[in-house]
């Protein structure tokens, strides 16, 4: 394990038990001998087609699932040991935001919902108040703090869900397709928050089907049928043809075309911002 790895997977395999009607349950291998380290403070994107095991992988990071074989070490502690004793000690360090904002909000008042996590870890009330207000301001939802979630848009609900996670002051936040159900504007807002979290020094893990989002990460892990198919910087991932990597982002295609036309675009120009920055210089 590297010195400053916050999460470390060692030969992790995981099978779901699938109950077929009548017959005995069959094992379905969802993770197949997966090993990797996540550096503290890094921004890692995980991509891959439906059913490739991304969510299963994510749920191993906060002991929602435990490996069938191999081990997952989070902050130096094996998740199997952690979940035996007090899984919430681990879960307050590794926050998780899910795809459907509706199904992860607990309370009918926004600020009470954000307080849910801190309440669970026994934070003193004054501290909770402070953390709730700070988190709501960070996601720009402070003025909606007394509303009911059913009055908010999908993007706003997702921002509340993120506030609920960062109110616990985690070291790392895992986002499992946080923008999948949102419109382009909602997606932009969520990405802005993710960037902000990363800039603050938090470790960010982003599972996504949008290559434009993945391009913003320091590193992309490509999953395929429970295995890691590729693990490299975005520029390198997008330059590989054989991975069949889904849609290469527009900025990458444009850079390649410009390079062909004789422009000296530096390698690693994978986001529109970076490209624009370079071209405008």
């Amino acid at each position: 394990m590297a010195e400053d790895a916050i999460i470390s997977f060692k030969n992790v395999s995981f099978s779901y038990l699938q109950e077929e009607d009548g017959s005995a349950p069959v094992e379905k291998l969802a993770l197949d001998d997966v090993s990797f380290d996540i550096q503290r403070g890094s921004f890692v994107a995980i991509v891959g087609s439906n059913g490739s095991g991304k969510s299963t992988l994510a749920k191993h990071m906060n002991a929602l699932l435990l490996p069938t074989s191999g081990s997952v070490i989070v902050e130096g502690i094996d998740t199997i040991t952690a979940s035996d004793e007090a899984p919430w000690e681990l879960r307050k360090k590794i926050g998780m935001v899910f795809q459907n904002p509706d199904n992860q909000l607990v309370s009918s008042i926004v600020e009470d919902d954000v307080a849910f996590g801190p309440e669970n870890i026994g934070m003193p009330p004054e501290e909770i108040r402070k953390r709730v207000d700070e988190s709501l301001k960070m996601v720009d939802m402070y003025e909606h703090r007394r509303k009911g979630p059913h009055l908010l848009s999908g993007g706003q609900k997702q921002r509340v869900a993120i506030a609920g996670v960062i109110a616990m002051d985690p070291d790392c936040v895992v986002f499992d397709e946080p923008t999948a159900m949102l419109d382009p504007r909602g997606r932009r807002e969520i990405m802005a928050i993710i960037r902000k979290l990363h800039d603050q020094g938090d470790t960010v893990i982003l599972i996504t089907h949008f290559m434009e989002e993945a391009a913003e990460a320091d590193r992309i892990i490509v999953m395929d049928q429970g295995k890691i198919a590729a693990d490299a910087a975005p520029a390198e991932i997008f330059s590989k043809e054989d991975l069949g990597v889904l849609n290469v982002p527009f900025a990458v295609k444009l850079s390649a075309a410009l390079r062909k036309a004789g422009f000296d675009i530096p390698a690693g120009t994978v986001t529109e911002e970076k490209l624009a920055e370079f071209l405008c210089r």
């Binding site: 899984p87 919430w88 879960r91 307050k92 998780m96 199904n103 600020e111 309440e119 609920g164």
Partner: peptide, 22 residues
């Protein structure tokens, strides 16, 4: 989904739980 999200947010019953509104 909700049960999973609640667990991910450290819910473990009423033991050791504090409240925002006193």
């Amino acid at each position: 989904d909700l049960a999973m999200a609640m667990e991910a947010r450290c819910y473990h019953g009423g033991k050791g739980r504090t409240r925002l509104h006193q």
